[in-house]
């Protein structure tokens, strides 16, 4: 779960967002795998970290990723009502909502943190989510923590 590998030094020129995606093993991670098998292309800006359930995500994971230079972080869990562990994705939703408040109060844009829901069969949607998130972060610009 170490997010050190997202340490980056890029400037604002030719900005390629660095995004860390915490993905549930039962949906988003499988969807990412399927997207690969289907040869669906999506931006290579995302680093995927597998979780046993999106409910396992801790707010500190999200903050640590941002602290270590990620421009955006996302959590991808099962469709609402379809969590393998009944309600993990609802817990993740609440945590992400809270993480948005936490980053906002220290002056970062809350849009840098987001939650998505999809099933393991939705490879196309996974690619679309990554495109959406990459474009969103590209518009926001690099994380202010990357100045140095």
């Amino acid at each position: 779960m170490e997010a050190k590998d997202v340490e980056v030094t890029a400037g604002t020129r030719d900005f390629e967002p660095r995004i860390v995606a915490f993905c549930c093993n039962y949906c988003a991670y499988a969807a990412a795998d399927l997207a690969g098998s289907m040869r669906l292309s999506y931006p290579a800006n995302v680093k995927v970290i597998r979780l046993p359930c999106s409910g396992k995500v801790e707010i500190t994971y999200l903050l640590k990723a941002l602290e270590d230079g990620a421009d955006g972080v996302m959590v991808a869990g099962c469709l609402e009502g379809d969590c393998h562990f009944m309600e993990g994705n609802y817990r993740a939703k609440r945590k992400v909502r809270h993480a948005k408040r936490l980053v906002e109060e220290i002056g970062l844009e809350s849009e840098r943190v987001e939650m998505f829901n999809l099933s393991s069969a939705m490879a196309g949607r996974f690619a679309e989510i990554i495109r959406e998130m990459t474009e969103r972060i590209r518009k926001l610009g690099p994380s202010p923590l990357r100045k140095g």
Binding site: E58, T60, E67, I106, L145, K147
Partner: peptide, 19 residues
């Protein structure tokens, strides 16, 4: 411990952001 981790990360992010 968990809340310490969260606040510490917030403070570090804020400090980095403000240089």
């Amino acid at each position: 411990e968990r809340e310490v981790g969260i606040l510490a990360a917030q403070l570090r992010i804020h400090a980095k952001k403000e240089g």
